[in-house]
Design a binder for these strands. Structure first.
Lengths: 224, 224
DNA sequence: AAGTGTGAAAAGTTTCACAGCG
DNA sequence: CGCTGTGAAACTTTTCACACTT
């Protein structure tokens, strides 16, 4: 396994920048995104007040959990009435740092990467893939037309010159760690990693893994 | 049937007499797949004994957790020596129900679906996508050549006539629930769902959600 | 009457620390 | 001695139940 240049940094107890947020369960943050989605739908249907019971059912959680989750961030409901759909939606959007369109880059415009570039769900949730990078930009450009595809080597310059903090990483597993190192060095703060390996990054960088084969394997355990 | 979409495993909760599996933490089962992958790699390198410390580092967990995870299934190690790489790998493979190639179908061979059909990771982990289904099979066939693409309507017949228990669901959100209902009715027991909605299924069917936009949103919370 | 906000209990998961085996 | 296996402690997250507000 690749040797990690940042490994020893963790030893000292440094003031963690994400510390103020840390008493909120991580899973609650995931659920916040779901609540937001449900609220948008309700808003589209002209609903302007919703109870924890109704919203929880739409989100697939229990009412008490919904209330507790919202309580981590403040008090938004009116007793006897419920939550104001629009206001609550806005508050969640703000909490998730999604008031504005968030730029993202994608590295590795191969099979999966180019499909993700065409995936409409990212834009729908407020993200904009502003550039893609590939070792073979000419080849990749054939399948990707929506986003500029640049040579892998331009990655550092682009990240330094643009205000982008998030990257989607879809390169083959053997290159994932070294590309991740470069992304981090260039200033990327969050990586959505599709490679089936454990990425080593400094503690101030967040990695979120989507391991497709793993998810399928996991199902295998539960079927008879 | 209120269920939490973030429990990646929407698992069986009925009092099942022959369910010895149920006191194993769900997260441990995920980790089992990771351990398996690491063991395969070690095996390829000719290693035949590995300590919990070494394997845990490779898998990105703490040694004590690895030992506890393995202990849920039995005793595989030798004190003073470690774990036998090949034997442990085989045992995990069996536990995950992956001794044999597992057939899978994919429904919705659009943008994301067709990329997944070309994704090599599934086969590498012992799954075989045996057929794909789409509302527009002719259109889909243009981009999919590796797997037979059939008309959506043939789904039921195929599932009934073949021993397939797992399905990958990549249809647009508005059709996801109805397709899921048909899959369940036809006898599918596990669904890997890529639609950003909460699927309702009977308790003996397992759903595993991969919500791409959600994963990106989650990162958004942690960056400054 | 309806429905939130929340302390306290329960459930679930991880980590510790060390006894015990090869 | 080195390293597993594990009970108990620590920690995290969910669920309950009800006081309290509109």
């Amino acid at each position: 396994m690749a040797k990690n240049p940042f490994e020893r940094v963790v030893a000292v107890e440094i003031p963690d920048p994400k510390a103020e947020k840390l008493d909120i369960p991580k899973k609650a943050i995931y659920r916040l995104s779901i609540y937001h989605r449900c609220l948008q739908k309700l808003l589209g249907n002209g609903v302007d007040m919703v109870s924890s019971t109704t919203l929880a059912k739409a989100a697939g959680v229990k009412p008490a959990q919904l209330r507790k989750d919202l309580a981590y961030f403040g008090q938004f409901g009116t007793r006897g009435l419920g939550y104001p759909v629009e206001l609550l939606g806005n508050t969640i959007r703000e909490t998730l740092g999604r008031e504005h369109l968030q730029p993202v880059i994608l590295v590795g415009a191969g099979n999966l990467g180019s499909a993700l570039l065409r995936y409409p769900g990212f834009e729908k949730e407020g993200f904009e893939v502003v550039a893609a990078f590939d070792a073979n930009p000419e080849v990749a450009r054939v399948r990707v037309t929506t986003v500029p595809v640049m040579a892998d080597g331009e990655l550092e310059r682009f990240v330094t010159e643009h205000p982008v903090k998030l990257a989607i990483l879809c390169v083959p597993a053997e290159f994932a760690q070294s590309v991740a190192n470069r992304l981090v060095a260039a200033g990327i703060q969050g990586v959505l990693n599709f490679s089936p390996i454990v990425l080593e990054v400094p503690p101030d960088v967040t990695v979120n893994n989507v391991d497709l084969a793993l998810e399928l394997e996991h199902l295998g355990y539960f079927i008879r």
